[in-house]
Nucleic acid binder design. Sequence first.
DNA 1: TTAAATTTGTTAAAATTTTCACTATTCGAG
DNA 2: CTCGAATAGTGAAAATTTTAACAAATTTAA
Lengths: 218, 218
Amino acid sequence: MILKKKKDKIPERTITRLPIYYNFLLEIQKNDIRMISSQEMARKVGIKASQFRKDLSYFGEFGTQGLGYSVEHLIEKIGGILHLNYRHNAVIVGVGNLGTALMNYPHFGEWGFHIVRAYDLDTSKVGRKIGYTTVKDIRELPRDIMIPLGIIAVPPSSAQEVANLLVASGVRGILNFTGSRIEVPNGVVVRSVDLTYELAVLNYYLSHFVPSGDSKKR
Amino acid sequence: MILKKKKDKIPERTITRLPIYYNFLLEIQKNDIRMISSQEMARKVGIKASQFRKDLSYFGEFGTQGLGYSVEHLIEKIGGILHLNYRHNAVIVGVGNLGTALMNYPHFGEWGFHIVRAYDLDTSKVGRKIGYTTVKDIRELPRDIMIPLGIIAVPPSSAQEVANLLVASGVRGILNFTGSRIEVPNGVVVRSVDLTYELAVLNYYLSHFVPSGDSKKR
DNA sequence: TTAAATTTGTTAAAATTTTCACTATTCGAG
DNA sequence: CTCGAATAGTGAAAATTTTAACAAATTTAA
């Protein structure tokens, strides 16, 4: 029997670099740059050229030897890998300062992410209008039609409770801003961002920095 | 200060996990938990016990064999490593939705980070009061007294310009929310957070995810 | 006091990720 | 057309990070 070739596992670090490449490519496209070499690309985003080429190699061959990469073509390809050529609807739970800022964050929309619904646990916030969206009571979440992406921007103490509700409502991917770890069933993907953690890591390097080599980026 | 094994280079991933440990320890301390084993710790924050012990081992010996770690002691030690036992002042540039949210973000203060000054490029925002802080014109930044931490929350197109100003004003660590790479002189530390990137990475895993353990097909 | 049960700190192995080094391809000049 | 310069893709080496395994230390129970 012929075994299906096992698909190579793609390094997580590779995945996290793709949006960086994508963003940079969009930027240079605005300046009418049509082609870019791995060297140039690498220099501009602060990595090694071989890493850029290796990263792409997990997904196919997108360049032309001797020439480089077509910016337009590469945008299309990386966009395809990240599924950015579709519209992605998301719900947000928690419309405090951070949640409200996220709802008004213009760059989400540019990449096809749209926060189409907002909920809060605090009934005093229900009914408030943010942009085109009216804040709803979180208890309505399970009855609303299913949306695949959820953003949690509530206090840490409610993180797990909200996560449970989202999962029960069919959400398959969660972006967690609470700083608390949340447990989800297999098949649900979570990514966590904690702004305080980032500041703490920055602070560590600030106080332990040895001025040789280059500084930590990204 | 840490004298032991100062020579060894500490993995960046280790540093980024310290705030997670710290946060979790603070949480359980509130619940009056006095001791914790590496096993328990690991289970709760979603890593392997050996990784937790290894991470700590770069900085010294903080546990008691047979017993585990004193929560209080560990908080003090990790806090010391991250320099969280001091007050850290920061300035922010850009008081749009995100910048304003960051200024009101309560968790910064809990970890000793205080945004003591706010600037904007948009003169129409100058003079506005956010919390206890009044927004100043960015041109005043170089004349103000030096603050070591800077947060950039302006549109990507102004990122480098603002970074230059911050560096010229003596800022040594920058938390960059613009999504654009910024170049800084040696000795200045940068960490970048891009909320859209996180959503894109989440989206990738959402569309390519195969539940771990048994291979459920999709 | 001794033995069993825990659990740390650490060494070494395994796994992952980055970097190097080289081949092959393409373009453009002569 | 041929040559030289530029550059992609890739297998292997190097570097980094994670995981496993175990000796040593400590507590608890008898």
